[in-house]
Amino acid sequence: MKKIFECANQYVRDSDWKDLALLKLCLCAMGIMIGLLIPKEKRKYPFLVAGIIFVATYIPLMVKFVKIAAKTFCPEKNS
Rank of each mutant, 00 (worst) to 15 (best):
K2T: 13
K2H: 12
K2G: 11
K3Q: 15
I4G: 07
I4R: 11
I4Q: 14
F5W: 09
F5I: 03
E6R: 06
E6H: 04
E6D: 15
E6Q: 13
E6W: 04
C7V: 00
C7R: 10
A8K: 01
A8S: 06
N9V: 04
N9E: 00
N9F: 15
Q10T: 05
Y11C: 00
V12T: 04
V12M: 11
D14N: 08
D14H: 02
S15P: 05
S15V: 13
D16R: 06
D16W: 00
D16Q: 03
W17K: 08
K18H: 10
K18W: 06
D19M: 02
D19E: 11
D19V: 00
L20M: 12
L20R: 06
L20V: 01
L20G: 07
L22P: 00
L22W: 08
L23E: 03
K24N: 11
K24F: 05
L25N: 12
L25E: 13
L25A: 08
C26H: 05
C26M: 13
C26N: 11
L27N: 15
C28M: 10
C28D: 02
A29E: 14
A29H: 01
A29G: 01
M30V: 15
G31I: 02
I32G: 05
I32V: 15
M33D: 11
I34Q: 13
G35V: 01
G35D: 10
G35P: 01
L36N: 15
L37Y: 01
L37W: 13
L37M: 15
L37H: 12
L37A: 15
I38N: 07
I38F: 07
I38T: 13
K40N: 14
K40D: 13
E41H: 00
K42T: 12
K42Q: 15
K42F: 12
R43V: 07
Y45Q: 14
Y45G: 09
Y45N: 09
F47Q: 06
L48E: 10
V49N: 06
V49W: 02
A50S: 08
G51L: 07
G51V: 04
G51K: 05
G51D: 08
I52P: 00
I52D: 09
I53N: 07
F54G: 08
F54T: 11
A56D: 02
A56T: 03
A56I: 03
T57E: 04
Y58E: 13
I59C: 08
L61C: 05
M62P: 04
V63L: 10
V63D: 05
K64Q: 11
K64L: 09
K64S: 07
K64V: 01
F65C: 11
V66P: 03
V66W: 01
V66I: 14
A69R: 07
A69Q: 14
A70C: 04
K71W: 03
T72P: 05
T72H: 13
F73W: 15
F73Q: 05
F73M: 02
C74D: 15
P75R: 05
P75E: 15
K77A: 08
N78H: 02
N78L: 11
S79K: 08
